[in-house]
């Protein structure tokens, strides 16, 4: 009843917002949040395609579950890394951490 394109547009907008957040934000936790936003958009896409394009299969749904699992793992690890960085550098702002610099 809901057209597929509407769902896809929602997902595209959410994804773009996530990209903007990742690029613009300074705080590492905020960046992680934006990444979660992107993952969410991806999940919406998976489910939408699964339901609309392959209604007789469950592949897309199962894949969405795996995405959620990976996202949870990623969130846990990333937050642990942020914690470690914060403890070493006394900051969670990514532009103040430039260990990559020559």
């Amino acid at each position: 009843m809901i057209p597929l394109q509407q769902v896809l547009v929602l997902s595209a907008l959410l994804f773009s917002l996530g990209v903007y957040g990742v690029l613009a934000r300074r705080n590492a936790v905020l960046i992680i949040m934006s990444v979660e936003l992107m993952l969410n958009a991806v999940n919406i896409n998976f489910i939408a395609f699964a339901v609309y394009l392959a209604p007789n299969k469950v592949v897309g749904l199962v894949f969405a579950i795996f995405v959620i699992v990976v996202a949870a793992a990623e969130a846990g690890l990333a937050l642990a890394i942020i914690l470690r960085v914060y403890r070493n550098e006394r900051t969670a702002n990514v532009d103040e951490v430039d260990l990559l610099k020559w």
């Binding site: 994804f15 917002l17 990209v19 903007y20 990742v22 613009a24 934000r25 705080n27 532009d95």
Partner: peptide, 26 residues
């Protein structure tokens, strides 16, 4: 310890990138 600005200095570029991506996707 929250900084005054939550956005980094490159936020205009980020806006362009994000907006461009959204436009292309839609």
């Amino acid at each position: 310890t929250q900084a005054l600005r939550l956005n980094g200095p490159q936020w205009p570029f980020a806006l362009v990138t994000g907006g461009g991506l959204g436009a292309v996707l839609i």
